[in-house]
Structure formats: C-alpha cells, structure tokens
C-alpha cells in the first residue's frame, strides 16, 4: 500500500497507446522517394542543377524559420515539410534559372502560401506550385528557357532547348519527332529516362514513377488520386486523337500525379473526393495542354482543384456504418 501511495499517477484520456508514425516521418519519407529524381537531375543538368536545388531548399527552410519566428510559433524545420516544399519547387524550375528566382519562389511558397494561411495543415494551395506559378508569371522568359541535359556532370556547355510539350504544341508532333530521328520509340525512351529538356525534377518519368510506387508501397499515398489523374490524361489523349504515351510521359504529369496532387493538406481527405479530384486534375491538364496558352497544364490543374478540395470533402462524405439500412428502415 505504501508503495502504491508513492507512485505518481499520470492521467489522460484514452487511447493510451499511439502508433509510432509521425508527421515528420511522413515528410522525410516522401522526400526520400524523390531522391532518385534528385540525383538524376544532378546527373542530367550538372552542378548547375544541384545549385538550383540547394538554393531552393535552403531558401524554403530559411523562410519557414523566419515566418514561424515572426508569429511566435515554435520553429519546426525538422518536421521536413519545408524541406519537401523546397525539393518540389526546385523540381519545377529550369536548371539555368537565375538564382533570385528560386529565392522569390520560396518566399511565395512558404511565407505567403503556407504561413499566411496558418502554417502546416491550413494552407489551401500547394505551396510549391503557387511558388512556381508566381515565378512563371513574373519571369516568363527565364522560366521557359530550358537547358538541354548535359552529357556528363563536368560538361558546362549549356544549350537552350524547348521542352517536348512546347515543341509539340507550337510546331506539332511531326516536328518534335524530327528531334528523335523520327522514331517514337526513341522519343518515349528519352522521356522515360529523362534525356530531354525540362524542369529539374520532371524530366525522368521513370524515376518519378519509382518514387511514386515506393510511396504507394509504403501506403503513404493510395491509388485514388494518381490513377484517375493519369488515366484521365491517357483517355482524353486517345479520344482527341493525340499520342497517349507522349502525354503520359512528357511534362510534369508523373511528378504532379504522384507527388503534388497527393499532397495531404491541399487535396481531399475522403477517398471518393480524391477520385473526383484526380479525374478533374486530368481533365484540366489536358484542356490546358490542348487548348490553353501554356504547353503544360499540370500545375494549374492541381492549383485549381486545390480550391475544390474542401468542397469535395463536404459533398462526397464517407458512408456512416449502418446509415443506408437506417434509411431503408424508415421508408
């Protein structure tokens, strides 16, 4: 009894056990899934690519700390969310971008899009994508001057080249195929492996896909967003007589479908909402690609759908256990 009396009792509400998974674990694992594409971008675009990556990530971390200090919140750099935003923003930039662009982009992404809306969990729009949209509109020329991949890490010859989507849009598929000796297989192969010009991280569809499959395997994401998104793009391409494989592999579709549209905070949380979200992202992407002024539509498609995420969660509710039967019983 005396022993029991000395024992200090801790009291809290159930449940008294919690799973080991944490938010920072999720963020760092998603970042790790982008590692293959990160390394590939350094390989394809050389030191310049690496510099853009590091500047963007460092800026995002700095603005995260700054924004949290300003509003007297604890600084939470170790949760990995700002790091991940930096990584994703850099993936959306050309390798030869002037370095003030990623810095401004990081400010817009972290300080404005994320923290002005309340910080992690409260932002409506995907921070990396708003950062990118802002710099694309502010510096349209620099943001669309693409560097062709370099043949080795040490080579410094920078050749400007339009992206495949751009060429296909402005000059047609025939013109694009000329760059690949008229061989579609060659084009697909280059798109898959990343030997094309484009943003840092979205060039190799294959490496992004590997990262995406890793997240699926880890159950950090599910098929409910990426599969409807990608399938819609392919179906629209088929229906409109465009090359579905090209639309699948070119541009930022893989990155968008697996890493941006699946962002927890800015997408729907219900599975039904996610399917609609994915389909709508696919439709908007193809609408912009085929009819819009920009060659690529993934970014705007996701940003537009971000606005609808809360509405989708409200309208496409889960079904409460026993709810259907109750209705039947009352009629």
């Amino acid at each position: 009894m005396s022993e029991a009396a000395q024992h200090q009792l801790i009291v809290s509400v159930s449940p008294h056990i919690k799973s080991e998974e944490t938010v920072s674990q999720i963020m760092w694992t998603v970042s790790a899934a982008l590692l293959p594409a990160f390394l590939a971008s350094a390989y394809f675009f050389g030191p310049r690519g690496l510099i853009v990556q590091l500047v963007t990530i460092a800026s995002c971390l700095a603005f995260e700390a700054f924004s949290q200090k300003v509003v007297n919140k604890p600084v939470t750099l170790s949760d990995g969310s700002a790091f991940l935003t930096g990584l994703l923003l850099a993936f959306n930039l050309p390798a030869n971008i002037p370095l003030y662009v990623p810095i401004v982009g990081s400010f817009v992404a972290i300080s404005i899009t994320k923290h002005l809306f309340g910080g992690l969990g409260y932002n409506i729009f995907n921070p990396a994508l708003v950062g990118r949209a802002f710099v694309l509109i502010s510096w349209p020329r620099q943001m669309t001057t693409w560097m062709a991949p370099v043949s080795s890490f040490t080579s410094v010859d920078v050749v400007s080249q339009a992206t495949p989507l751009n060429v296909a849009k402005l000059d047609g598929m025939a013109k694009l195929l000329e760059q690949f000796d008229g061989s579609k297989i060659q084009l697909y192969k280059s798109l898959l492996m990343g030997q094309i010009s484009g943003s840092l991280g979205e060039t190799s569809a294959l490496l992004i896909l590997i990262g995406g499959l890793f997240l699926l395997f880890k159950k950090y994401i599910t098929w409910h967003v990426p599969v409807p998104f990608i399938a819609t793009v392919v179906i629209v391409a088929l229906v409109t007589g465009n090359d579905p494989v090209f639309h699948l592999l070119a541009g930022g579709l893989m990155l968008g479908a697996f890493f941006m549209a699946t962002d927890y905070v800015t997408g729907p949380a219900t599975r039904r909402g996610q399917i609609v979200f994915g389909v709508m992202c696919g439709l908007l992407t193809m609408l912009i690609r085929l009819k819009g002024g920009y060659p690529e539509g993934v970014m705007f498609a996701i940003l537009i759908m971000n606005c609808f995420a809360p509405l989708l969660d409200r309208r496409l509710r889960t079904t409460t256990f026993g709810a259907v039967k109750k209705k039947e019983a009352s009629t």
Binding site: I10, S12, H16, I17, K18, V23, I26, D79, G118, G119, L120, G121, Y122, Y264, V265, G267, A269, T270, R271, D313, R317, T318, T319, T320, F321, A323
Partner: peptide
C-alpha cells in the same frame, strides 16, 4: 515513457483516421 502524452500538431488531412474509422466517420 509509455504514459507520456506526445504533443499534438495540426491536422494535415492525411485521411488515415478516415481510412480506419470502423463507423465510417470523418
């Protein structure tokens, strides 16, 4: 150690709770 209540953060809307709720709630 098991008795500690970990500090909680904001909801990141990951949907894990929705996936596991036996009553199908959100």
């Amino acid at each position: 150690e098991e008795s500690e209540t970990p500090p909680h953060g904001p909801c990141i809307r990951c949907g894990r709770c929705i996936d596991v709720c036996p009553m199908g709630l959100q």
